[in-house]
């Protein structure tokens, strides 16, 4: 046997930094899964999601979250759902498949995404410089989600609170994405 061991590491190595009142940190304890609908199985999947987690299927642009925070469904488009849940299983798709009992196709996407959480008052001043969407609470309220791009990189943005956003970007270019967010925060943080 080789005389070394492998240790898991996250795309941004657990980045965590304060910019004035705003905190930017990497989230490393969440699993990300895509959920696809079998052909003609919309009603069955909706029922399975309801009985498994007590959740509605989110409309495109909206998300729904279980009260215990253990499952978060993101509606990214027509028949396109992403699931965020605590990464507490070696194969995160296994318990989801079990819970849905074959009514949906769950695929683990955790390793291809880097997840950032940005919190604090005034953070919109930093995000509005790199995100093409209108992030005013009237246009993008708590629970709103969108797949878009920032600094030419594909990204998913979710408003998790009044002054809190989750950003997802490709793990392969996570460093460039972090640099874009950091630069914007450096320019705008009080």
């Amino acid at each position: 046997m080789p005389d070394f061991t492998l240790t898991p590491t996250s795309p941004l190595k657990g980045f965590d930094k304060q910019f004035g009142d705003i905190r930017l940190r990497e989230v490393t304890d969440q699993a990300i899964l895509s959920l696809a609908t079998p052909l003609g199985g919309e009603t069955a999947l909706k029922a399975a999601v309801g009985s498994a987690w007590g959740l509605e299927m989110p409309a495109p642009g909206r998300s729904s979250r279980a009260d215990d925070g253990k499952v978060h469904l993101l509606g990214l488009g027509a028949d396109q759902i992403f699931i965020l849940k605590p990464h507490d299983h070696l194969q995160p798709d296994a318990p989801v498949r079990e819970a849905l009992n074959g009514a949906g196709y769950a695929t683990d996407q955790s390793d291809v995404w880097a997840m950032l959480e940005i919190t604090g008052p005034g953070l919109r001043r930093a995000l509005e410089r790199i995100c093409p969407l209108d992030l005013h609470p009237d246009a993008f309220p708590v629970g709103a989600v969108a797949r878009t791009m920032m600094e030419h990189m594909g990204a998913i943005i979710l408003r998790s609170g009044e002054d809190a956003f989750i950003l997802l970007a490709a793990s392969s270019s996570a460093g460039s994405f972090l640099h874009a967010v950091e630069t914007s925060l450096n320019w705008t943080a009080p």
Binding site: P60, G61, G77, A78, P132, L133, D134, A146, T148, M149
Partner: peptide, 10 residues
């Protein structure tokens, strides 16, 4: 029609 106003760059 589903996602609202989006920049043409997308």
């Amino acid at each position: 029609p589903l996602l609202g106003p989006r920049d043409a760059a997308e």
